[in-house]
Amino acid sequence: MSIDERLAAVWLLIQSSPLTGLGLTLLVYCLAMKLYKESGHNPLINPVIVSVLIIIATLIITDTSYQQYFTGGELIHFLLGPATVSLAVPLYMQLHRIKKLLLPILITLVSSVFIGCFSAIYIADWLGASLATQISIAPKSVTTPVAMGISENIGGIVSLTAGLAVTTGVIGAILGTKIFSLMAIKDDSIKGIAMGLTSHGIGTARAFQVSDQMGAFSGLAMAITAFTTAFMLPWILSLAGFL
């Protein structure tokens, strides 16, 4: 084998080995977390969006496909399942607080499913987005693995929904605390519920930085809205004539 052929084989290995996608994701995430900490937790330097942008740029420059990247990325993506299940723990620890607020939480939850899906669908429609995009955007406030499942059920583009859900999470994490202070809301349980209903896991990660209470309520909101949206959305969309 000539040296050129060996180099080509090495390059193919680097591009297609799970090690590359996995290593790249972990390294870039650590870098993004460092930037985030050094910026004094500036919400604009959100570690998810910084990581995503750096990784996409790297893949484009090295002419690597998403499928090749995902052989490694999948190993991290896979942990979203157990992480979702583990939300039961903070939920259980906050149960006494949640019980007191049961009715307000339920009312807010059900209204948020309607408000969330229709605000996004109608704005997208008004600005000329295709029907496929409108359907893919509907579950944007649901935690990514569940949003992907819902998207599949209602005939959306599954990987587009995943990206839009992540983006929604980041936008909420960036704007949330600012908006709550503008609205003069001081109660961490209220802030947590609003954050989790809007921005699922990424908002919850941000909420845990504010306080454990806000994080737990955000985690609760994320869990119940995943459940409720999964049941309600196919039904709402077919009543509204989208399916």
Binding site: T25, Y29, P47, I60, F70, I76, P90, L160, A162
Partner: peptide
């Protein structure tokens, strides 16, 4: 541990935006 690094777990799905 898992919830402490929740942000990391969303990165691969976010990179999927490049497909579109």
């Amino acid at each position: 541990t898992l919830l402490g690094h929740l942000s990391l777990l969303f990165v691969p799905a976010g990179v999927g935006l490049m497909l579109h």
